[in-house]
Amino acid sequence: MSYQFKWSVLWSGQSGYWLLQGLITTLELSALAWLLAVALGILSGALRTVPFRPLRAAATFYVEFFRNVPLLVWMFFWYFGVPPLLPRGVQDWLFDHGAEFWAGMFALGVYHGARMSEVIRSGIQSIPRTQFEASVAMGLSVWQAYRLVILPIALRLIVPPITNESLNLLKNSSVALTISVAELTFQTRQIETYTARAIEALTAGTLIYLVLCVSIAWVMSSLERRYAIPGLIARVGGAG
């Protein structure tokens, strides 16, 4: 093997700045999309279990529509499809203010929201129905029963699969490079283009994703332990 590694390409020239910008964009894009996804996921996941058929149907439509179209197609849809439908002034404003970022954010958020919805629904459905009955029997409204009892229990149960989904969202934010969002993968490819150093650039990107994902997993598992329901969730190392 005659390849000579040249790691200095990562901090010479503009590379370091590009990587940092890419990292920041990836974090912004993922954080906003995550908030949207969690909000949509909780809303539609909960609605799929309520005793009103029209609300269940609407939530089911959302989930099946958004999770069954590839993320890449959603990216193109929100970036190329939606703006022409908007008034001229709004279009101009959008393209002056990072339309690709917002299109990418929406695509990621609604796609992962539909997937999180199913996780949340399964969490809710794992709670005995009698918990809901006990809540409404004491006078709580259906909304209060969900907000105070059902969701607080369900959200604690589903931390591991939600962690999975959150990591997927972060990694899928790289698809936004196809609509030219200058996120981390976009920037590593830019470094590669400028330096012709593919291995070094991709290694940097890989390590950053790895560190981000491991950190998120660590934060989520501390949350899981912190909010564990006594006796309901077996803690690692606990004797039950």
């Binding site: 009698t130 009955e133 006990a134 029997a137 004491m138 006078g139 329901i229 006796g231 309901l232």
Partner: peptide, 20 residues
């Protein structure tokens, strides 16, 4: 419904305390 259910308490076979 709310008025009715605040006037009628119920105890279940499976206790149904909220575990959290």
């Amino acid at each position: 419904l709310t008025r009715l259910r605040t006037q009628v308490g119920m105890v279940f076979q499976s206790f149904n305390l909220f575990p959290h």
